[in-house]
């Protein structure tokens, strides 16, 4: 089963084409990794999945992105509804300008949940990311006071609190120290089977450790896509082989 399918996707920033004829389907409740050298269009591809690309006025998008079989770019589709089904964990942890509690509660309040429910979900999610014991005494304190690793876990809790079906991670461990990065990685691994996770990473070893499915991109084109064992065991394209051997990129 696939939960997200991309069909013939083309993206331009002004006149410059960033994605060319992308066709790929991401397996449901598995971790998929998008790898490739800097500037090859990984973030662009990821942001096309929750229509965040549109925040940039000069972006032009062609093609289809199917979420449970329905094109999220079709006319009449409610962008807000699409976005609340797809969570995003960014590269740099970004706490909203409010308290720790309010950060996790933010998405829930948007959905109009009641107070008791919000308090429950916030606690459950903070526990799930292993932050509860560290912050339960200072839930009202500004979230900016947390360390980088704690902030990223808070962001994960905030994203998961709204119960998305798909979790997008754009190099979510890249800005963290090794220990915090490991922590986030383990959390993502534990989410396998519950969420469809699509992660962008620079780190081939991380992809090896986590991914069930791998997509390799090069200069805006999709070069190879395969289940992880196949991808790492017997890469077909020469570019892939060179990249995995770290001869290029």
């Amino acid at each position: 089963m696939y939960s997200l399918t991309v069909q013939n996707l083309n993206v331009w920033y002004g006149k410059q084409q960033a994605l060319k004829n992308i066709d790929v389907a991401f397996p449901e409740r598995r971790i998929s990794a998008i790898i490739g050298p800097s500037g090859c269009g990984k973030s662009t591809l990821l942001k096309s999945f929750n229509r965040l690309l549109e925040l940039n006025e000069q972006v032009r998008i062609e093609g289809r992105v199917l979420l449970d079989g329905e094109d999220i770019y079709a006319p009449g589709v409610d962008v807000v509804a699409v976005r609340s089904r797809i969570g995003l964990l960014a590269q740099k942890p970004f706490p909203l300008p409010m308290s720790i509690f309010d950060n996790v509660a933010y998405g829930l309040r948007l959905q109009g949940r009641n107070k008791r429910e919000i308090a429950e979900v916030v606690e459950a999610q903070l526990r799930a990311v292993g932050l509860w014991e560290e912050v339960k005494e200072r839930l009202k304190a500004p979230a900016t006071g947390l360390s980088g690793g704690q902030q990223q876990r808070l962001c994960l809790a905030r994203t998961l609190a709204v119960r998305p079906e798909i979790l997008l991670c754009d190099e979510s461990t890249a800005s963290l120290d090794p220990l915090s990065a490991r922590g986030i990685e383990e959390l993502l691994a534990a989410l396998r089977g519950h969420y469809t996770i699509i992660m962008v990473t620079h780190d081939i070893d991380q992809a090896r450790r986590l991914a069930d499915y791998v997509v390799f991109m090069w200069l805006g084109e999709l070069v190879e896509k395969a289940p992880a064992a196949e991808f790492f065991g017997a890469p077909r394209a020469e570019l892939t082989q060179a990249y995995l051997a770290r001869r290029i990129g």
């Binding site: 925040l55 509804a81 976005r83 995003l88 970004f94 909203l96 998405g107 948007l110 959905q111 994203t159």
Partner: peptide, 8 residues
Amino acid sequence: ETGFALGA
């Protein structure tokens, strides 16, 4: 990005 991604 964060606000919109959370469904604002």
